[in-house]
Design a protein around this nucleic acid. Structure first.
Lengths: 130, 130
DNA sequence: ACAACTTATATGACGCATCATCGAATGACA
DNA sequence: TGTCATTCGATGATGCGTCATATAAGTTGT
C-alpha cells in the first residue's frame, strides 16, 4: 500500500469518525435531556419496535444489535426499570426471555423517534442533490 | 420531512454507525493487544505526532480532538505513565502545559500507525473502483 | 437415565468517558 | 493596585460497555 493510499484511508476514517461522534453525541444529549434515556437504549427500543408483535428474545436482540449480550442485558434492565419493556418467559425454551415494549415503551419510542430523526436531519451530512 | 426521507436518513445513519463501530472496535482490540493502548490514546498520539516540533498545549489538543478536556487530561496521564509523552511547563502562560512525544512515544506511534492503517485497509468499506 | 457439552441470560470487576467542580494563573477595568 | 471574571488544567463521582464467569436449561450419546 502506498503512502497516498494510507493517507486517503486515514482521511476516510476520520470523516466517518467525526460524523459518527458528532451525531451520536448530539443524539445522546437530546435523548437524555428529553427522555432520560441514552442512545443505545433508544436503538434498542427501535429494534424492539421493528419486531412489532413478533416475539423477540434476548438472543434475537443480540443478533441484530451491535451491542454485546452483556450490554443488552443491562440496557433491557434499565428499560424495564423505566417501565418501557417487559421480560416474559418463553414457552418454547425456558432459558429464553421474550422482550417486548410496554404501552409506555411504544409511546416513548414514538416520541423519541421524532427527536432522533430531527437530529439526523440536522447533523448527518447531506450526501445527495444540488 | 416525508416518511421516505426519514427512512433513508435512518439507513444512512445505521450504515455510518455500523462502519464506525466495527472499525473502532477492531482498532481498539488490535491496538490494545499489540501495544496496550486504546484507540483514543492512539488518536491522541497521532495528533501529537502531527505537531512535530511545534509546541502543543493541552488546550490545543482539546481543540483538535473530539474528546473532552477531561478525557484528554486522563489520556495524557496514561500516556505519560507509559513514558510516551511528557508534560512541561509553558513559558508564556503558567496555567498551560506543553505536551510532547518522547522518543518512545514517537516509536510507539510509528509502530501503532502501521497496525492502524492495516485495520483500516481491512475494515473500511472500499468506496472507489471495481 | 446419566454425563458431558452447548446455549440463553445475568452479574461482578474493571476501564474509560463525561459532567461538575476545583485551584491556580491571567486579564480587564476601576 | 485590588477586585472580579475568565481561562487552563486536574480530579472525584457517576454511568455505561466489555470481558470473564456463573447459573440454569436444553441437547446428545451411551
Amino acid at each position: 500500500m502506498s503512502t497516498t493510499d494510507a493517507t486517503a484511508l486515514v482521511e476516510q476514517w476520520r470523516s466517518v469518525q467525526s460524523c459518527y461522534l458528532k451525531t451520536s453525541n448530539t443524539l445522546d444529549r437530546e435523548l437524555a435531556s428529553h427522555f432520560g434515556i441514552g442512545l443505545n437504549d433508544f436503538e434498542t427500543l427501535d429494534l424492539l419496535a421493528e419486531y412489532g408483535d413478533a416475539e423477540c428474545r434476548m438472543k434475537d436482540l443480540t443478533q441484530v444489535s451491535p451491542m454485546t449480550q452483556s450490554a443488552l442485558s443491562k440496557i433491557v434492565d434499565r428499560l424495564e426499570k423505566g417501565g418501557y419493556v417487559h421480560r416474559s418467559a418463553c414457552s418454547e425454551d425456558r432459558r429464553s426471555l421474550v422482550v417486548g415494549l410496554t404501552d409506555a415503551g411504544v409511546q416513548l419510542h414514538e416520541d423519541a423517534a421524532k427527536i432522533h430523526r430531527e437530529v439526523l436531519m440536522n447533523t448527518l451530512p447531506t450526501t445527495a442533490e444540488s
